[in-house]
Amino acid sequence: MTDRFAAGAHVRTYPHDPPHHTRLPRYARGKRGVVVEPEGRAPLADVRAQGRDDARVEMIYAVRFAARELWGEGDHHVVLDLSESYLREAE
């Protein structure tokens, strides 16, 4: 099985507020970042947290965001560990 995103891929996180637990922090919703590396697979926390045992196993990616993209200011970077379904290819 090949990973959907390779290191260096430009991605954008989903923008919405799901009605259940998720591990995409609010401050990083709808933001554009660059994949650092795939980290390994894990059951999707969003599904597990609903007490369901049918969580699909997904690749998690380290994704690097510029502070300016997240906050509109700042010169640092933030890296988050994000499940594949949180991400789509950036335009």
Partner: peptide
Amino acid sequence: DITVWDSSAET
């Protein structure tokens, strides 16, 4: 350059 690593999953 400062990088903040926000451990939001298993790592």
